[in-house]
Design a protein around this nucleic acid. Structure first.
Lengths: 144, 144
DNA sequence: GCTTGACCTAGAGAGAACTCTAGGTTTTAG
DNA sequence: CTAAAACCTAGAGTTCTCTCTAGGTCAAGC
């Protein structure tokens, strides 16, 4: 695809964003873009750098577990133009809380997992087996 | 179900673990338990307290994003009895790293999301709109 | 001008982890 | 004893997020 005023092909955008071309088309069908993607004379997609920035933000949302439906909602608000900033803010704040909660949960789980790791390390080093799970909870307790 | 020597019904286990009875049967089919679940004379499942402890650990694994296939692998190692502790340790260590990475990613995303939240807060308070996404990147830059 | 690689659409398929259904049996409470 | 609640199996269905296929079209290099 010849340069369309700084335009990028779907393949180039895929490379820059780490998303597959399939995923980019999928996102478009889902209405995640801020505006219609331009097309070349031959019908191929032409992306602007702004689309790439937006996709990078979307990627952050995705990586932090935001469902596509929510990204879509956010995109709709942005597309609707100014006036709904409080709604956008509310959406972002809620997602922020969600992410904070997720981090807290993971951190709690991590502590427990780390505990098991330490327990197993001791056992492996010392060649003992006490305190780890066994099929029939043999002589002692079962806990690691 | 009459008490089978401290045994618990599937419903009781569901309540204690927060898993649905469907999920418990599913886990069993998937081979996530450390040993076959006993059955009452009438064919109903009878769980031991040890099964509940194991499920609670499994829940931690699940909540921290461990795939069922990996939990199954861990269960298999435990079922196989002692001797494979180094393998169990390796599995746990890898999961620990995965969780750490996940927390790091989320933390990075959170920083960016928090940034956007702060930006929007300012805009909403001041009634301005500069610096936030708009459909046609109007007068200024587009970044928030 | 032709081959090769990138791109197009519409829609099917995948897989992860459940969840639910249908049709029937067992337990428990009154 | 009986009715309701809980349980059983096997297997189909759901949700989410892509991913892949089939059957072409478009673009770029030699």
């Amino acid at each position: 695809m010849t340069r369309h005023a700084g335009g990028l092909s779907i393949g180039q955008v895929a490379e820059k964003t780490g998303l597959s071309v399939h995923a980019l088309r999928f996102f478009e069908r889902e209405g995640l873009f801020l505006r219609p993607i331009r097309r070349s004379a031959g019908g191929q997609r032409v992306y602007d750098p702004a689309d790439v920035s937006w996709l990078l933000l979307c990627n952050r949302f995705r990586e932090s577990g935001m469902p596509i439906a929510t990204m879509k909602r956010f995109a709709e608000l942005v597309r609707a133009g100014s006036g709904n900033e409080p709604e956008r803010l509310a959406l972002l704040e809620e997602h922020e809380r969600t992410v904070q909660a997720k981090i807290a949960d993971l951190t709690a789980s991590l502590a427990i997992i780390h505990d098991k790791v330490m327990t197993y390390r001791r056992h492996v080093e010392e060649g003992t087996a006490a305190g780890v799970w066994s099929p029939k909870p043999g002589p002692g307790r079962r806990s690691a």
